[in-house]
């Protein structure tokens, strides 16, 4: 495993960001970026589908931080970095004319639809919506319902669910996502948000 520890592990992202903006210390920015570099790499890998290009993207995004951070007022570095990463990938794909259906995929990703602060009702563990949630879960299609129940109620991991339902993990994730989307629609109809 990687031995990564910054000089200021106790500091929040925003504290480190403020420190960097105040003194322009690249080490501080590096420490902040290190916290998310694996995620930036992962997202880049997802969209660019090329290890070298993804690594390039990680370093280019760091350079972009150096130039962009002073020009923006950033409240949530993590969310901002996420959007920055996706936009960078988007530009790369467009430059390489490899968009195909990826643009739509990117646009439809939750990050562009909801802020990081908005959790799905089922993830909020809000007891006040329990009844409505149960009712909506009951209306889901069989496979979505099963996956939701196994994951949230029985606390099984994807792998266990896939084994139990004899389907690929990818399918499990898909059913979970679709189920959650349908749940949200159902709850909104009941004025539960």
């Amino acid at each position: 495993m990687l031995q990564i520890s910054g000089k200021h592990p106790e500091k929040t992202d925003e504290e480190l960001l403020g420190k960097y903006l105040a003194a322009g210390d690249l080490d501080v920015l590096g420490e902040l970026y290190t916290r998310y570099m694996h995620m930036v790499y992962g997202v880049s890998l997802k969209y660019l589908e090329n290890r070298e290009e993804a690594k390039d993207a990680v370093m280019q995004i760091f350079e972009q931080l150096v130039t962009d951070l002073p020009r923006h007022r950033i409240r949530n570095f993590r969310s901002w970095l996420y959007v920055l990463t996706k936009n960078h990938c988007f530009m790369q794909l467009r430059a390489a004319k490899r968009m195909r259906g990826k643009l739509e995929a990117i646009k439809n990703e939750p990050a562009f639809m909801e802020s990081g602060e908005e959790l799905h009702p089922i993830d909020r563990a809000d007891e006040s919506i329990e009844d409505a949630l149960r009712m909506c879960i009951g209306q889901l299609r069989s496979e979505q319902k099963q996956c939701i129940e196994l994951f949230y109620d029985q606390k099984l991991c994807y792998k266990e669910i896939s084994e139990r339902m004899h389907m690929e993990e990818k399918k499990v994730k898909s059913h979970l996502q679709n189920g959650k989307r349908n749940l949200k629609i159902c709850l909104e109809k009941k004025n539960v948000r």
């Binding site: 992962g42 996420y82 990050a111 991991c157 979970l176």
Partner: peptide
Amino acid sequence: ERDLETDPFSREAMEGLEK
């Protein structure tokens, strides 16, 4: 995975890393 479900950044990062 519960964290992945609530955090699109992590989820997408994991999707990429799993490639």
